[in-house]
Amino acid sequence: MNLTLRVWRQAGPAAAGAMREYRAEGISPDMSFLEMLDVVNEGLIAKGDEPIAFDHDCREGICGMCGMMINGAAHGPQRLTTACQLHMRSFSDGETITIEPWRATAFPVLKDLVVDRSAFDRIIQAGGFISAPTGSAVDGNAIPIPKLDADDAMDAAACIGCGACVAACPNASASLFTAAKISHLGSLPQGQPERSRRALAMVAQMDLESFGGCSLFGECMEACPKGISIDTINTMHRDFLFASATKRDVKEWSGGA
């Protein structure tokens, strides 16, 4: 396959960027999208040009590093698929492909297609954890959990923190990410002690990081490579409203452990 790429190039966080055009030639339809970029980069390096910087790690759809906007869709045209798992057979020979970094105030561009997603880490730090005794793991089934609750928690826990929800949202909202974490822990008995405090703290941090609010456009759910449902956002709102009304377990926490 021969393709034309239009790629956002930006030398550094403070540098001005621009779209630049490249040719990608002799691409196999069986290559992944990132392998296609590898081929283009080898050509650039051979010519003494700066290769296109993009994030990646696992290349098997589980680490969440490889996000980019491909032809106007987060992670490209294939549903439930990260950019690293997207194959070139999803494109047609001769096509022009537009590739851009995630765009959000909270995700500043570091270089080319690489953005800084540490805002997500700070949201997790604000409350995305449980207070569990350390030591050896408890016996399986020592804490009975209804199957449907376990399923809900598992579905929400599938979030890999890639940022596609923010990237695809017209408001650049991190609601789906934050809601997935709140729903995941809130569905389980282990998550109950901090449930109210978690909702308040994670939502507050999400706002502090300059993400937009949720308008329920639904674009995040479509972009999510793990298919996380906007039903989690309903849960986040419920937990937040309950916590605001009752202020339950908020005071104990401010004292520290």
């Binding site: 779209m19 906007m69 106007g72 537009t98 851009e100 695809a168 017209p170």
Partner: peptide, 8 residues
Amino acid sequence: YERRDAQV
């Protein structure tokens, strides 16, 4: 974005 298509 230069291009962001509404999907759903």
